[in-house]
Write a protein that binds this DNA or RNA. Structure first.
Lengths: 215, 215
DNA sequence: GTCTATAGATGGATAGAC
DNA sequence: GTCTATCCATCTATAGAC
């Protein structure tokens, strides 16, 4: 097969990509421990040995998906935060900062996008991830630190401790956007809450969190 | 052995209780799928067959822990909501309603209490539970409905849909109080956030959520 | 009721043919 | 690189002795 610019031939790249996509999808829908290597290779239409050949192990595959998706998410958030900073002379207001935090995962979760699978995967990683993933989540907070710094600048009258706690509350709002929780809310509200209206939900979250931050 | 009032002898009750406690603890700390029946019986100091003899299966044991703890939590929340209702002529303000929702799981999470294990167990059940547990979580919302009704009464100017979404946001704040998330926040704030001050945290959560609700 | 031994099933990983 | 066959560890559940 012809070599691609990155040195892998197209066949290899296609197989690896198929495994990656199938694994992310199954992990996001069923949970990490409820998906076997056999499930993944079967869904991807490749042979059983592919996971170990291309990724080394099931856990390494999990970790690679985790690293790629969180990097993409953090990049988009950083981009929006930077843009907000540019638009407000380096001192964006609370709402603009929170929008940079909320919008990327929410917009990815739009019903028509494949990306919604990635969001569910990331949320699951927070509670079901391997030791290695949890280690990264707990210790690699440099990305969040930029948001905390921006919020401190935007709320000069609030103690730093308060800012951190409120940021924690905002993250909780995001992490609760799992399929099962939307379903529960749908039952509770007797259908009044429509998960599909992403921009409406973003506005609701921003209204709530902004008010909480300025309390 | 002498029979106890409930018809079980003391030895049986003690073994069953030891299994229950050990299982809850291990599940809460390591996650449901990362704990084997062998781990549980070993920790409890009983023989391997005890789980199946006393509970039927590993999943049934999980479910029994889940049912007992959620029932206790919901009972305490209902009690506080009822009390708030009595204190405000049947129409408690938002803050009192939210306190009935927040305080029970938070106070149980106090560092010195064994109950903090129960709270972590319940939070884990939301994302890692079995099909049966997820079914209960999604469909049995009668307890939450009472909170929604109280909030609707307390906020006559807000559309019902808005109330439900904001209740969803509040639940997200609670569910994010996992050990790993507290650790992450601790790293991010460089030690400024002290998880141990439960009453302080409760006040912070109420300040944030109340402001969000009245926005 | 308690315990040991084991059945029975499944999963991750790999050797070796092609 | 791909694939099949298989190894080996681990797990839940249970049979049967005491």
């Amino acid at each position: 097969m012809p070599a691609t610019p990155d040195g892998e031939d197209a066949g290899e790249a296609a197989t690896k990509a198929a495994v990656f996509t199938a694994a992310e999808r199954l992990f996001a829908l069923r949970g990490f421990q409820n998906v076997s290597v056999r499930d993944i290779t079967s869904e991807a239409g490749v042979n059983l040995a592919s996971v170990n050949y291309h990724f080394g192990s099931k856990d390494a595959l999990l970790f690679e998906i985790f690293r790629r998706r969180t990097a993409e998410l953090n990049r988009e958030r950083a981009r929006m935060l930077h843009e907000a900073s540019d638009n407000h002379q380096g001192k964006p207001p609370v709402r603009a900062i929170l929008e940079a935090l909320f919008a990327p995962p929410l917009r990815w979760a739009a019903p028509s996008l494949d990306r919604r699978i990635s969001v569910q995967f990331i949320i699951r990683a927070r509670s079901e991830g391997t030791e290695e993933m949890r280690d990264v989540l707990v210790k690699d907070v440099s990305h969040l630190a930029r948001f905390a710094d921006a919020l401190i600048l935007a709320c000069p009258d609030l103690p730093r401790e308060t800012i951190y706690w409120r940021l924690h509350f905002c993250l909780g709002m995001i992490h609760n956007n799992r399929f099962a929780e939307f379903d529960r809310l749908h039952v509770l509200s007797d259908g009044a809450t429509r998960e599909g209206d992403i921009e409406g939900l973003l506005k609701r979250m921003l209204d709530f969190a902004e008010a909480g931050f300025l309390a």
